[in-house]
Write a protein that binds this DNA or RNA. Structure first.
Lengths: 121, 121
DNA sequence: TAACTATGTGATTATATACTCATATAGTAA
DNA sequence: TTACTATATGAGTATATAATCACATAGTTA
C-alpha cells in the first residue's frame, strides 16, 4: 500500500482530469442549449428580471420557466436573489454573452452556404 | 387576399423571427453540449483528424464517434472531406474555440465559490 | 387572522438522445 | 476477383429531458 499516491501515472490522471473538465463544460453548454433558455438569456442581457416577467416575455408557463431557470442556476450560468415575493434572476457569467456573437457568426456562414447552394441549382 | 403580405404586424413577425434564431442557436449549442463532443472539439483545435484517430483519442467506439461527428456537421460546427479510405473532420467555425475560454472562466468562478463555501463551514 | 400572488416541485407523459451491435457501403491493396 | 479497412447507418434499448397539471410553500396585504 506504500507509495499508493504514485501508483497512478501522471499522464493517466491528467487524462482523467481532462474528462472531468469536458463533463463540466458540457454541463454548462447543455444548460444553454434550449431555445427557451437562449431566449431567457437574451432577455437577461439587459439586467435582472423576475420569473413572472421572464415567463411573460418568452410566452411560457411560469412553472416551466422556473425549471429552466433552475437548470441554469445549477450550471452556474445564472444567480438569483429574493426580493419580496419575487425571485430575481441575472447572468452570473457575462462572458456567456460573447457566445452569442459567435453563434450569430456561425448562422451567417450557414446562410451563405445555403445561398451558394441555391445559386448552383 | 389582397395585401396579405402586410397582414402580419412587423412586430409579430420580428418576434417570430427571433424565435427561429433562438432555435438555430440552441441547435448549435446542443451540438456542442456533450462531454465526448467537447473532447473531440478540443482534439480538433490543432487541425483535421480522421474518425479513426478521433475514436482512439477519445477512447470510444468508431460508430459512436461517427454519429457524434455527424451531429456537429449537421449543426455547421464541423466540416468533412474524404481522403482515400478516411474521412477527415475539421472545425468549420473557429470562433467556437473562444467558447471554451469562457467555459473555463465559468468553471474557475464556480471553483472559487466552492472554496468560499468550504472555508465558511 | 384570511385571501392573495409569485415561485418551486412531485408526478406523469411524451419525446429526444446516446450507446451498442450487426450490417451496409466505399475505397484500397493483393 | 477477393480480402481488408474506414466509415456510416438501421434497429433496439436505456436514459435524459421537457411540458403540463396539481399542489405546496413563502411572502404580502388587508
Amino acid at each position: 500500500m506504500a507509495g499508493k499516491t504514485r501508483q497512478t501515472c501522471p499522464c493517466v490522471s491528467r487524462k482523467a482530469g481532462r474528462r472531468v473538465v469536458y463533463e463540466k463544460q458540457a454541463e454548462i453548454l447543455k444548460a444553454l442549449a434550449h431555445p427557451l433558455r437562449v431566449a431567457i438569456l437574451d432577455f437577461l442581457k439587459d439586467g435582472e428580471q423576475c420569473v413572472c416577467d421572464i415567463a411573460k416575455h418568452v410566452n411560457s408557463e411560469r412553472s416551466n420557466v422556473s425549471r429552466h431557470l433552475a437548470v441554469m442556476v445549477n450550471a452556474g450560468v445564472l444567480e438569483s436573489r429574493k426580493q419580496g415575493l419575487n425571485v430575481m434572476y441575472e447572468l452570473k457569467a457575462l462572458c456567456i454573452l460573447d457566445f452569442f456573437s459567435c453563434l450569430e457568426k456561425c448562422l451567417k456562414v450557414q446562410a451563405k452556404d445555403t445561398q451558394k447552394l441555391m445559386k448552383a441549382l
